[in-house]
Design a protein around this nucleic acid. Sequence first.
RNA 1: UGACCAAUGGUGUAAUGGUAGCACUACAGGUUUUGGUUCUGUCAGUCCAGGUUCGAAUCCUGGUUGGUCAACCA
Length: 562
Amino acid sequence: MEAKNTSETTPKVGLNFIEAIIEEDIRNGKNDGKVYTRFPPEPNGYLHIGHAKSICLNFGIAKKYHGKTNLRFDDTNPVKEDVEYVDSIKEDIQWLGFQWHAEYYASDYFEQLYQWAIQLIEEGKAYVDDSTQEEISRQRGVPTAPGIESPYRNRSVSENLDLFQRMRQGEFPDGSRVLRAKIDMASPNMHMRDPIMYRILHAEHHRTGNQWCIYPMYDYAHGQSDSIEGITHSICTLEFEVHRPLYDWFCKALRIHHPQQIEFARLNINYTVMSKRKLLQLVQEKHVRAWDDPRMPTICGLRRRGYTPESIRNFAETIGVAKRDNVIDISLLEFCVREDLNKKALRTMAVLDPLKLIIDNYPEGQSEMLQAVNNPENKNEGVRSLPFSRELWIERSDFMEDAPKDFFRLTVGKEVRLKYAYIIKCESVEKDAEGKITAIHCTYDPQTRSGMPDSSRKVKGTIHWLSAAHCKTAEVRLFDRLFYVPNPDEVEEGKTFLDYLNPDSLQIINAFVEPMFINTNHLAHYQFERIGYFCIDKDSSAEKLVFNKTVSLKDTWTKHNK
RNA sequence: UGACCAAUGGUGUAAUGGUAGCACUACAGGUUUUGGUUCUGUCAGUCCAGGUUCGAAUCCUGGUUGGUCAACCA
């Protein structure tokens, strides 16, 4: 064996702040040194890249410290939740490469939560309030001034018990009463001003059906659910920071296992939106085709776009975790997927904007098979055969009539290499009545076929091509950013985020591809040489190939020309 | 005119009282049968003012700026 890298034994540095807390807890023997996390989505929408950050964090930390992670659906609001979302969430987590230790639902704990509510009532720490929603809102006051106590605040324990039980029995209509925790109406923290624990909701729940007509609020359910599961570190986003005193209050009042809530800054990416509400609106109002539209920042959208789980996990790792608000540049996500696909994607040639090229000195009717490398980054992927003939398609942008001297591609009188084939020289241009170029004529040097000694001759450029008689057609969907402004959440007066939708975010074209494409799997990744990474869309069939563009190759040439 | 949280290059994130580092971006160059990859290099940072200390990005005080909180949503 070679000597091991010494970095394995050097002390760890560069921990994120959550890992630092956990390592401190482990050193102090807190929770017997155990680490138990959970990912707690509400099943009311599809997961997006922001959730991926949280998933990677929660599962990643548990793995790093030899702990476990539960999947728990936070399903305390039956009017918004649905099994459709439960299924998609599970699929997305697994696709990302994570497996939960146990699958739970907050609704599993409804009976326990109810019993704990009884306990709090008996201890004088909760009461039934008959005030209307408006009255409660008014009593609560504003952040800068204390609220006032409800007239129902000092009901007797027996009356509270009776009323709460009758709430459960379904004796009262929706919204007529709530159960509140008796804390402090003068607290500077609004969440401590006698927060609502239960509301009456005669609604069918996706799991408990019509068993309940009172449902616990987030604050009354979340910490206790963590507690029941023995979670040690309850990691959530920053907006729950002001809820932490309440989280702690319930755990203490109930004298139950007390997990530690830790908040981190959610992910933002420029040129997109990340709120579930806005994503839902994009789908419902048909600004995109579906939740898995490749322009969406949803996990399923990214998957259909051609992103790999590895690239997303690496992205989550690279952006780090901290408490300050952040906006990640979309170019980092693109870098991560290119980095992964460069290693994995098989190379192929495709022509997106075709221009006919005729090799005048190549015999008509003749063709030959040439060898092409499948992936220069991984020679184990082998080679494939490629037909070559007299009439080819090349990319229109690879020819220019009046070319600047740093244009390495084809122009009249100059040479270029056809990748894996011959060196050709451009002789003339054919145009139509409007002056548009319809074809270009070249001659080839038969001694320069790839592999021949003369092929090592220096030529400035190499371009891709396809034999017109042999190639296939395919639909190619090109995507651009969904919004044309960096921050669509920041709207001018009188506008909404929808006003910043990029009208050109989807472009569908017909293109030519290599004849090799038959019966390929959905989501198979390819690099169209010199263009970008593409994958096969699920709309593909034996009759019609459909590709999605994942991301362009880095392109210093077009950038240079801007 | 409240409470809480945060502040390090253009972006993100380390440095845990002791040399401000890494990644992305941008730019320049070497290699290249992808203007890709890869390699080398360059530009660029501790919000402000005090204090503690031999020494402060780090600790303290005050300010500034940004975020969060007033659903019977989560």
